[in-house]
Design a binder for these strands. Structure first.
Lengths: 351, 351
DNA sequence: GTGAAAGCGCTAACAT
DNA sequence: ATGTTAGCGCTTTCAC
């Protein structure tokens, strides 16, 4: 069977009125411009024919598609999944559709994803950049396409952003370790030039150390990536470099878990031998054998905020930047007064 | 600045040709119907003006949107994330856009998500149902909207499906435990009537036991949900019921991890005291303290297959059902010859 | 080879 | 209160 949609004119014909009248009934923008009798007749016909307005056709006329595009690295990822969920919920609330424009983690693949979204006529784009120099995004902004940056901030991109204060989050994590008495604190992080947020977290780590009068030891800073494996390898590298480390701030929970495993294998006990703090508060972090102390980002809230900003940009032409406060979630991986998973679960179950 | 797209007629005017000619240049369907000179001139103009075709307008004319809708429960989930990634990649390869139609886990919320997608004029829908009686989906199929079911199979829904053989996967998991010598094998699973796949996994578990001449003990079957907490609670319940269990087949890795934690807290050691098998092979399962033996589904491949099926359905009017084979991934949670995480990682790193 | 005209489903502006 | 006309950006006849 061929799929033929019911259109306005079908309804009009069936109801014995003109197309415009039906349109008026549908669009409440005409409160009392249709007689009650006609309105009822039309509504009945719509119901009977199972009519659904064609959003695309409406969009063509209005110059809007009521679609927003999301340009993120990939969706199969705990972190982006939460962000995307927030975006979706926010969009649903604003009657906007969400169009995926993912590209694989390859740096520089922004181009095609963004152009693709533009070509589909999205009203605006939520952009998670992975390039230090986001050329295509800048071009689109220059062309006037509403775009908001999420999580990552690009200096040269003239678009509002929604993100968490990475510097402050890293500072908080490091300071927490310092206050616990640690002095040899290592950092496993992402420092590729392409990742603004990784650099900000590094800077926060360094600033905290300096604030406590501790000299920065480059040997304690190990590069990793946003995944488990790299955290594992980074931990091995770190241990190769120096054995006197008592604490680690990892700039993502992925890396932290990888490091945890490397410790386990090497017979290093967490938190007894080494204290560990992560970043992001990913869903599994609370369910590890040693629940992870970490810096949480309000991921879903950020997704929703990004939609609100984008709507502002589309409709008012401007939107403020939104900076969320990170929050230190203290669990067991630094020992001390941290809550254990067990007590947390009791809270959860009883609460 | 207002965002005004460059249109065909802009290009035509600039290039001094008609709109149709430009359209012909764009659509390679007219191989040699345009003189080389004109073609070059037009292409140059397109480049200069940075023209991008308006996919929506094209769709309006063609009666297609080149958009497919994805109706899944939620995106912020390791499982759905992978599926969605597969769908996205498959769609990108077929030049299709992916529109999100998520609804929260509430049963019966299918309705609005599906209608919303229909209203946006998607060419077809990939559907993960959560209702035993998917009324809206059935109505859409009856109306002729191409729809393929993913992961879950609804008996009364006349639409092709792409999924893994849940029964067989559960059978394999249980048989593995049986071959390891276990006889008191419990099952933590999802048996709500709304979840076809949970029931199939239960059936596979039961069939394996029966094949080995073991009577089914209802006390060993505990209901859970697709999350950690419920696995944790289910394990506690199970242990309350009987203490002689030597193995557990959990019908999702989420539940398995929850059970693992409950064991840890209760001082039960895995795999020494109890062997554990999960289902789904979620990303974190390999990174647990005791890496989880589990039944893997080819999630991304299934997403891609679903797109191919949907394209077939849209373009040919039919598509075959696709049933993937589950695969038992043996790690450490059942002891014995299972690979440890450590050896796995060596493979990974060296390979 | 190229262009003019019609129309996809809808809404806005202007009648009546 | 209802209808007529025009046009959103594009593709598809059908002429030239």
């Amino acid at each position: 069977m061929i799929y033929m949609r019911v259109t306005l004119s079908d309804v009009a014909r069936e109801a014995g009125v003109s197309i415009v009248t039906v349109s008026r009934v549908i669009n409440s923008s005409y409160p009392e411009k249709v007689s009650n009798e006609t309105r009822l007749k039309v509504l009945e016909t719509i119901e009977r024919l199972n009519y659904r307005p064609n959003v695309m056709a409406r969009g063509l006329q209005k110059g809007r598609t009521y679609l927003i595009g999301v340009a993120i690295v990939r969706v199969a990822d705990s972190f982006f999944g939460d962000i995307l969920q927030g975006i979706h919920d926010g969009a649903a609330a604003a009657d906007l559709g969400v169009l995926l424009g993912t590209r694989r983690l390859d740096i520089g693949k922004d181009e095609s994803a963004l152009r693709e979204l533009q070509s589909r006529g999205v009203d605006g784009i939520i952009y998670y950049g992975t390039t230090p120099n986001p050329k295509t995004a800048m071009k689109l902004v220059a062309e006037g396409l509403p775009l908001v940056q999420i999580c990552n901030l690009h200096d040269h991109l003239n678009a509002p952003y929604v993100m968490v204060d990475h510097f402050r989050g890293a500072y908080m994590a490091t300071e927490y370790l310092l206050q616990l008495g640690h002095r040899r604190i290592a950092h496993i992080g992402v420092h590729g030039g392409a990742d603004p947020q990784g650099l900000q977290r590094l800077a926060g780590y360094q600033a905290a150390l300096q604030a406590y009068g501790i000299e920065i030891d480059e040997r304690l800073i190990v590069a990793a990536d946003w995944n488990w494996e790299s955290g594992y390898l980074a931990m091995q590298e770190l241990y190769r470099r120096c054995k006197d480390v008592t604490a680690i701030f990892a700039s993502s929970d992925f890396a932290a878990v990888g490091a945890m495993r490397a410790c386990q294998v090497a017979g290093i006990e967490i938190p007894h031998d080494i204290a560990l703090v992560g970043f992001d508060d990913l869903p599994f972090s609370a369910w590890l054998d040693v629940p992870l102390t970490t810096v949480a980002q309000p991921k879903e809230a950020m997704g929703q905020a990004a939609v609100r900003s984008l709507v502002g940009l589309i409709e008012e032409g401007s939107a403020p930047n939104v900076m969320f406060e990170p929050q230190l979630v203290i669990r067991a991986s630094c020992g001390g007064n941290g809550k254990t998973r067990e007590s947390r679960l009791q809270d959860q179950v009883s609460g």
